[in-house]
Design a protein around this nucleic acid. Structure first.
Lengths: 340, 340
DNA sequence: GTCTCGTGCTGAAAGGTTTTAGCACTGGCG
DNA sequence: CGCCAGTGCTAAAACCTTTCAGCACGAGAC
C-alpha cells in the first residue's frame, strides 16, 4: 500500500533538491542545471512513474487546467451530444479537463452549479443552451472567463452561434436553383417565437436568410404555414392544410427536420412521393434526416464545431469579443428533384 | 481586485483561530466552542461570503468530491444523453462534481483520460459504453473505486446493465397476449453479434427472454430474419423479404426501434398499415419510436436510471459487487392490434 | 493546598507544489 | 590578491485547509 510518489521522492532518488526537480520537469527556461542533473532527474521521475499532484499544483498556481460546462438542457438531449464531443475533443487537445453540470430545473440549480465550479477553481465557464436564446445568468465572479454557446447573455462577452442567416439563404437558394420558384411552400413560420429573444435569438435570422433569397429572385411562396412548435405532428397538420388547399406546390421549405418528417408522412398518406411529386428541404440535420427515404437535404446545425470553437475561444488568451458565427453546411441528399 | 476570503480572514474577523473556524464551519462533533464563538464565526463567514478553497481542502483530505465519467462514445451520442442526465442528477444530489471525458478514438486516449482523472484525484471512475459490451481497460490504480455502466470489465467489480432478459420476455409476451402467436416474425436475429461479447454481452439475454416467452406458449415464429447491424435500411430489407415470402405474418417483433422504423417503411410501401394489417413491437424506446405513427410499443433502455444507479453505487460505501440489472419498462403505445 | 478534570480554545504541522532569493564555488581580470 | 560575474544548485516561503496535541484556567475532590 504505497502512495503516489511526490516531488520529494523524485528529488531524493535523483540526489537533487525539490526545486531542481520542479524546474527540470516543467522545463523552465533560464534554469541552468547541468546536463547530468537533468538526465538524473528525468530518469528518477520515469523510474518512479512520477505524476504531479494536481491539487497541490492548483493550490499553488491558482489555476486548475479545468473548464466548466454548464447547460440548461443540452447535456441531456440528443442535440447536445455533438456539442459535447467538439468541446471534449478540443479540451483533450489542450490538456484540459472538463467539469460538467446541468441546470435544467431551476435558476437556483444554475447558481449552485456555478458556485460548485467556481469553488473548484475552473479556469473558465462555458454556458450552453438547447435553443439559441437569451439566457439569464447569475453574476460572474470578477475575472472569470466565459463564453456562451448556442445562447447569448449580456454579461458574457463572447458567444458562439450558428450562422442561421447564411443557412436560410443557402437552403432557399438550393430549392430555387432547382427550379421550384413557382411552387414553393414554407412550412413553419413561427410568429410567437420570432418575437421573443428568450425563445430564440437566431430564428429571425433563419427567416431573414430565406427572405433574402426569395427577394433576390423575386419569388413569393405559394403558401406560408404557421407552426408554433416545430414538431413532427405539427408539420404533418400544416402540410395537410397546404395539400388540401390545392396550392400548386412543387417544394416544401420546412423550418426544421422534424417538421419535414411530419410533412413527409402527410404526403405519403395522400399518395405523394418525395422527391418525385414534391421536393423537401429543411434545417438542422437531425438524426431523423438521414433515416428518411430519401434522405433529407438540410442545413446542418454545426454543434460539434460550435462546441470546439467555444472551448478554443475560452482558452485563447487574446479576447475576441462578439458573436462568432459558425457556418451551417448544406447536406445535399436526395429530397430535392430538379425541375426541367 | 480583492481575492476570495480565506479561512484566516474569517478567523481574523471573528477574533478566533483558524482551527476554531474550521471546526465550526464543518461542524465537527466534539469541538466544544461557546455558543457566542460559534455565532460570531458564522456571522463573519456570512459577511465575507466565505467559500472554502476546494484545492486546499482536497490537498489536505486526499479526496475531491469529484467523480470521473469516461465513455467510449456514449457522451457523444444521443443514446448517452439520458445516461449523463441521470448521472449528473444523482451527482448533484450528493454534491459531487463530474469530470467527463471520451475516448472514442483509441486505447491511448483512454489511458490518457484515465490518467488525467487520476491526477485530478477523482474519488471514483465510471466507465460507460455505447453498447453493452465487454471492454478493455488499463489497470486501475490500487484503491480506486469504479463501476461500469452499460458495459463490463473483469477488473471492475460492479456493473450496471439493462435487464434485457426481462425485456425480451415482456415484449414477446405483449405480442403473444394480443393474439399474435400464429403470425409472429422476428426481425433482427444477429448471429455474429450474439457470439462475441466484445460486441455485446446482453444481446443474448434479449433473445433468451424472447425464447422463454415463446417456449412458455409453445410458439414457433413464422419467420426469423438475420440482420447484422440493426439499422433502418436493414430492417427495411429484412421486412421486405418476409413480406415477399408470403408467410402469414400478423406481427413483427423487431430487435430494435430503428429496425422497426425500416420495417414500417417497407410495409407502407406495400400498402400495409400499422397496426391494422401488421403489429410491431421492439426495443430501446429510441427517439424515433415516438415520432412514428402510430407510436411504437417498445421496451425502454433505461439509460437515465442506469446513470443514476452507477453513480449511487460508486459512492455507496458498502460495496455491492456484481451485476445490477435495471428494468426495461415496456412503453405501450399504438403499434399492436389485439386480434379478436 | 495540591490534584484532577472539564471547558474553551489555539499553535503548528502536514499535504505537494512553485518560485523567490540567495548560497557556494570557480575562473578571469585588474 | 581582491573583486566580479557566471554557474549550478538549494532553503524556505507561500498557496489554504484540516487536525493533532496541548495550553490555560477554573472548579470540585481529596
Amino acid at each position: 500500500m504505497n502512495k503516489r510518489p511526490t516531488l520529494a521522492d523524485v528529488a531524493a532518488r535523483a540526489g537533487m533538491s525539490k526545486t531542481a526537480v520542479s524546474l527540470v520537469l516543467n522545463n523552465r527556461p533560464g534554469s541552468r542545471l547541468s546536463d547530468d542533473a537533468v538526465a538524473r532527474i528525468h530518469e528518477a521521475a520515469r523510474e518512479l512513474d512520477y505524476r504531479p499532484n494536481a491539487q497541490a499544483r492548483s493550490l499553488r498556481l491558482g489555476t486548475t487546467g479545468t473548464v466548466g460546462f454548464i447547460s440548461d438542457d443540452v447535456t441531456v438531449t440528443r442535440f447536445a451530444s455533438p456539442m459535447i464531443r467538439g468541446l471534449l475533443d478540443a479540451a483533450d487537445e489542450q490538456d484540459r479537463g472538463v467539469l460538467i453540470a446541468e441546470t435544467f430545473k431551476h435558476p437556483k440549480q444554475l447558481r449552485k452549479a456555478m458556485e460548485a465550479m467556481v469553488d473548484r477553481q475552473v479556469d473558465g465557464l462555458i454556458f450552453g443552451a438547447l435553443s439559441a436564446r437569451l439566457v439569464d445568468l447569475p453574476p460572474l465572479p470578477a475575472g472569470m472567463r466565459a463564453v456562451t454557446v448556442n445562447c447569448v447573455n449580456p454579461e458574457v462577452p463572447v458567444a458562439v452561434l450558428p450562422d442561421e442567416e447564411q443557412a436560410g439563404y443557402a437552403v432557399t437558394r438550393q430549392l430555387l436553383d432547382a427550379g421550384h420558384a413557382a411552387g414553393l411552400a414554407v412550412i413553419g413560420n413561427a410568429p410567437v417565437a420570432r418575437s421573443d429573444p428568450r425563445v430564440s435569438v437566431t430564428i429571425n435570422r433563419r427567416f431573414k436568410g430565406i427572405q433574402r433569397a426569395l427577394d433576390e429572385s423575386g419569388v413569393t411562396p405559394v403558401a406560408v404555414e404557421d407552426i408554433e412548435f416545430w414538431e413532427p405532428w405539427n408539420g404533418y397538420d400544416a402540410t395537410k392544410r397546404v395539400l388540401e388547399s390545392d396550392a400548386p406546390v412543387t417544394a416544401l421549405l420546412c423550418l426544421n427536420d422534424r417538421v419535414s418528417f411530419g410533412a413527409q408522412q402527410a404526403m405519403t398518406e395522400r399518395g405523394l412521393r418525395v422527391p418525385d411529386d414534391v421536393s423537401i428541404a429543411s434545417f438542422d440535420d437531425d438524426e431523423i434526416a438521414s433515416y428518411m427515404r430519401p434522405a433529407l437535404t438540410t442545413a446542418r446545425l454545426p454543434y460539434e464545431q460550435m462546441g470546439r470553437q467555444a472551448l478554443e475561444l475560452l482558452l485563447r488568451p487574446e479576447e475576441s469579443p462578439g458573436e462568432h458565427l459558425v457556418e451551417m453546411p448544406l447536406q445535399v441528399r436526395g429530397s430535392i428533384r430538379p425541375l426541367a
